[in-house]
Design a protein around this nucleic acid. Sequence first.
DNA 1: ATATTTGACTAACAAACGTTAGTTAGCTTG
DNA 2: CAAGCTAACTAACGTTTGTTAGTCAAATAT
Lengths: 190, 190
Amino acid sequence: MNRKEDIILKAARLFRKKGFSSSSMRDIAGSVGIEAPSLYNHIKSKHEILEIILLEIAEDFTNGMNSICESDKKASQLLKEIIDLHITLTIKKTDQIGLLTHEWINLTGAAREKFLKLRNDYELNFKKVIEKGMMEGEFKKLHIDLTLFSTLSTLRWLYAWYKSNQDMDIDRLRSDMYTLLVDGLTQGLD
Amino acid sequence: MNRKEDIILKAARLFRKKGFSSSSMRDIAGSVGIEAPSLYNHIKSKHEILEIILLEIAEDFTNGMNSICESDKKASQLLKEIIDLHITLTIKKTDQIGLLTHEWINLTGAAREKFLKLRNDYELNFKKVIEKGMMEGEFKKLHIDLTLFSTLSTLRWLYAWYKSNQDMDIDRLRSDMYTLLVDGLTQGLD
DNA sequence: ATATTTGACTAACAAACGTTAGTTAGCTTG
DNA sequence: CAAGCTAACTAACGTTTGTTAGTCAAATAT
């Protein structure tokens, strides 16, 4: 099964560089070092490759979020843990995360529905954390969806920034993200 | 020339929904209401459509940024004007902006170089505003690139949020964005 | 040692792709 | 009114696409 993992990995890298639709099975095979038809000894279709990549990383996020939400800490602490989750996954699976935001449009049928459900649940849990912070007076009272969207877009774009700044100290990254995303919400309260 | 504009507009909508590579010339023609070969009476190639869309919106941003940077106001004021620029363009050209962040990978040759130069210059000007704010003691001193990237990703993702919240009051959106992106940098200074 | 499975290969398919050629109806211009 | 231009059409092109069929050598299991 090492081959299969290699195919998925190389495909993810290619999809990120050229996009899913612009990457052919011959491209993928070439970057693995085999011929295109040989791919089908390991995967069912080109679409299945994308499904595996996207659903795996979506489930990583869902699992991480669920275990964070189980506890009843302060909202600011929960937010920090969510930030940690994003940083950890970004470092571990940079290429896959780069596909999350846009390439899901190439999913169809059940895979598409499942992916969107995971994403929606994730955002809903995230939203609850922000609402909690605002309700308990820890966060500024802003438009909730806009705050969610703003925080999330920074976290989602981390991968693009990380790719060209891999030398940065992770602890520094973490603490600056806290300042940017948490302190911005908690400080300056009137 | 009305047809040409219509083609560009319909193509932008299609590209955003299905991606550039997954949208065929027959798809585009269909959404315009003509046959695929008739497109070539108005445009040179499929790639040219993407180039027109991306370079036009990139130049909109560049022009906006340049006229903002001409003045010597406080950094916080400049940042607010940059936010205004993003909001204005997002409302006026939602579909086109949705392509900016990812579909440029389908550009080749001179168009790609030109686009990336525009984008890079834009980010450099943006960075100067943030640096100015930090140097003059108006903004918190954080990792500059990370701050830039965080602010920019929120602004770049506005289009996705706007699409499903078109009923929101623009002035409310503007003021909440100020709070989120400007106050977060200025408040809580030690 | 024999049988079976694995995983690579070449050949090839049908469909879809961007695009060109050639034609024609209708509008614009002298 | 005639000439030329515009912008649509159909037919068809050569490529590239994802994928299937069939083959075969090496590894694995019995």
